[in-house]
Amino acid sequence: MFTVTFVLHEKSGSDRSEALQYWRTTHADVVRRVPGVAHYVQQHALGAPEGEPPFLGVASLSFADEAAFGVAAGSEEFAAAVADVANFADADRLPTAFTEDVVIVG
């Protein structure tokens, strides 16, 4: 598997619960159309030890391999998914990395 992970930050002036709902429903439907996505996970930040979470959440998209990601990244559907981020999160703050799952328990 080849995985790309995004950290999403709140959009200034937006309602957090509405942003999370949009992400869970409308944005998820956009991502479902990206070719080659084998696994898509959203992790919504609901709280933090200090109170408010420092970000909206994390999303990971997994593909069969790096070549499959390359095809997806060059697609209109992927471009639409990236563009849609501005509808619920801060599109200018979207740290992204290629990641590997290292399972310690489970």
Rank of each mutant, 00 (worst) to 15 (best):
V34M: 03
V58F: 06
F63Q: 01
S60W: 08
V103L: 15
A97P: 00
A73N: 11
L46E: 14
E76Y: 03
T25V: 13
A45Q: 04
S75C: 09
A83I: 02
V7W: 06
S17R: 14
L8Y: 10
E66V: 10
P54V: 03
T96A: 12
A59M: 07
A64S: 13
L56F: 02
A45G: 06
A79D: 13
F78T: 02
A97N: 09
S14T: 12
L94K: 10
A73Q: 07
P49E: 13
F69T: 04
E100R: 15
V85Y: 00
S75A: 05
A67L: 10
H39I: 07
A80F: 06
D65L: 04
A89Y: 00
S12M: 13
G36A: 14
S17E: 15
P54T: 11
T5K: 05
A68N: 08
A64P: 03
V71H: 14
V41R: 14
G47A: 14
Y40I: 07
G51P: 07
A81K: 00
N87I: 01
V82F: 00
V58N: 01
A86M: 04
E18V: 11
T5P: 03
V103G: 07
F2Q: 06
E50R: 07
G57M: 12
S17P: 00
S12T: 11
E10G: 08
E66H: 05
R33W: 04
R32S: 15
I104N: 09
T3G: 05
R33S: 10
L46W: 12
Q21M: 12
G57I: 03
F63D: 03
F98V: 10
R24Y: 09
G74Y: 12
D29Y: 02
A80V: 01
E100T: 14
V85E: 01
P53I: 07
D92K: 15
F88M: 02
E77N: 10
A91S: 14
F78W: 13
S14R: 08
L20D: 01
E77C: 05
R32L: 13
F69D: 00
A28K: 12
T99Q: 04
R16V: 15
A91C: 05
T25R: 12
Q21V: 08
L20S: 03
F2C: 03
Y40P: 09
G74M: 09
S17A: 15
P95Q: 02
E100V: 07
A68K: 08
S62W: 04
W23M: 01
F55G: 02
V103D: 08
L94A: 09
V82R: 00
D101K: 14
A48M: 06
V37I: 15
V31N: 03
D92M: 07
W23K: 02
H27A: 04
E100L: 11
P49R: 13
A91K: 09
H9S: 09
G51N: 07
E77L: 01
H44P: 04
A81M: 05
T99N: 13
A48N: 10
A89E: 01
E76I: 02
L94S: 03
E50H: 11
